[in-house]
Amino acid sequence: MSATQPNSRALGALGVGAAAAGRATRLRLRGPGLQRLISPVVLLILWQLIHVFNLVSVKKLPPPTTVLSTAWNLITTNEPAYGTLQGALGASLERMVIGFALGAGVALILALVSGLSRWGENTFDPILQMIRTVPLFGLVPVFIVWFGIGELPKILLIALAALIPLYLNAFAGIRGVDHRLWELADVLGLSRSERLRHVILPGALPQTLVGLRLSLGTAWLALVVAEQVNTNAGLGYMINQATQFLSNNVIFVALAVYTILGLATDWLVRLLERRALAWRRGLLT
């Protein structure tokens, strides 16, 4: 009990991912938000300039304008070899949503059980710590042997990829809630549900959101890997087909879509962070 004033601020900073705090603040500032767009745009221009000056073969690296026009073709015409871009996107998104929801749901339930009880920790934590050390993508052949080549192994791989980082961070978040607040809850005579709602869950939220961001990252990777194996729909299927037809343009379109999806979900989580962690910035909501 030797915190310096203002103590509430010191309390708030405990058990909190520094990365999350930094991001949330940066997003608020409009100027720097725009500033962050400058370097990617410059990179795109340089990429285009490479081709203006014929520095690299168009076959190896298509310029951004070609990637865009290829994307437009894939959207407007249903090529027998590839299907449409929106069709592929839909198939990939469906896999991702189902797999991620499954993995994240299980992760949160297990983190709650392990975080709130010793027996829960002793039961589930060792298993998850073990799974954590298994190289995820080494499991792909095993999953195919076990679950065949349909949607199931793909969805399970994505779920597992989402599960581990979210579980680890949510669990650490719950256990990291300042013990002085647990004590306060005792003094105030809070009921079990009040304790959960007002102290534990909000206290674990910052670290859990860091976990959410990480798990989205690994889940997108898992999607890409899973889709390269025996698929007949989705962005990965499109890449496989394009490899056979040696169409680098289509591969780049698919990669660009993956990238945009990853950025979009990251942005969503940041938005969530901004709203949920408003108390850190001291602004009224």
Binding site: M1, S2, A3, P6, N7, S8, R9, A10, L11, G12, R180, L181, L184, A185, V187, L188, G189, L190, E194, H198, V199, P202, G203, L205, W279, R280
Partner: peptide
């Protein structure tokens, strides 16, 4: 009881801090 660190719940408003429990 009042502690040396004011021990307010940082993610609850001032009013909720007093009202809780």
């Amino acid at each position: 009881i009042a502690f040396q660190d004011a021990r307010l719940i940082p993610w609850r408003s001032v009013l909720d801090n007093v009202r809780l429990g």
